[in-house]
Amino acid sequence: MSSIYLLIPLSVILIGVAVWAFFWAVDTGQFEDLDAQARSILEDEDASRSGD
């Protein structure tokens, strides 16, 4: 039962890591355009356009 006193702080740390990862993803623009990647496989030419 006392293991819970270890596991709960661990879960708090884990959530901290998850939040940090999500913030990083948002800041690096992972959620900016959710359609372009899906569409890009349909394009013939090499998609070397510069994103903004």
Partner: peptide, 28 residues
């Protein structure tokens, strides 16, 4: 455009934190 993107990103971060936080709190 940059201002809009800033607003969008800040909003996403707030949602992310609130979502993860509320799920975790729900568990406790």
């Amino acid at each position: 455009a940059a201002a809009r993107r800033e607003e969008r990103r800040a909003s996403l971060k707030r949602i992310g934190l609130a979502g993860l936080g509320s799920v975790q709190i729900m568990m406790y």
